[in-house]
Amino acid sequence: MLTRLFTALLLLAVPVLGVYTFVTAADHGWWMQPEVSTFGQDVDFLFYLILGMVTFFFVLTEMLLFWFVWRYSKKDSSKAVYTHGSHKLEMLWTAVPAGLLVLIAFFQMSTWAEMRFKGSFPEGEPFAHVWASQFDWRFQYPGADGEFGTMDDLESPYEFVVPVNQPVKFVLHSRDVIHSFSVPAFRLKQDAMPGLAIPVWFQAEEIGEYDLVCMELCGWGHYKMAGKVRVVSEEDYRAYMAGLQSEFMNTGMEG
């Protein structure tokens, strides 16, 4: 009898505590970081869409499991229901999830295309070439002549400064092993693959500093391969570039 109670309680605890954890998670900061990019909203919408559907089926199946185990483990000397299945039910629980899953798959496509397909990339030259190496990020800007790969290219460690509300395209490289350029707040993640130059784009919608995290194991120092993406206003961006430029040309006179 106690085994029965215990088991049923355990099985009941799974959906109850499971849902409770997710509901209260945000209070502890155990929830998604705030999104600040154009496709952040879409990604979050899709996340919540799937979360809703998943929660429904999670609660449904776990509650059924709890109820059946509780209800049908009662001492009963009669035989169980003798059935080998039901064609109708099988059809139902194949067709309904199938429809939902197709729907979900369908919903993803436009966002995915917006994030990655070449048609949605902004026109023109990239803002920067981003270099990943063990265990540093370097950002290379075109300098005064507006061209990459020339002597006056500007370079900054750690911090990637981009203007707000503008599509920013950059080209991602790796000098050694696989790294991953990931800015959780932008819902952006792209591996830096040695031997490939991978174009990436995003558009940040809020001024601020956002963590740039390496998300692909790149060796012993993977955990400390940090960076920052600083989103600034158009003027601040210009000022920053001018500052980089003057720093580039500095001759050590002012310290």
Partner: peptide
Amino acid sequence: IWMAATPVDIYIH
């Protein structure tokens, strides 16, 4: 299912 959905996976990958 989150992991299967490409845009969401980009966040949680």
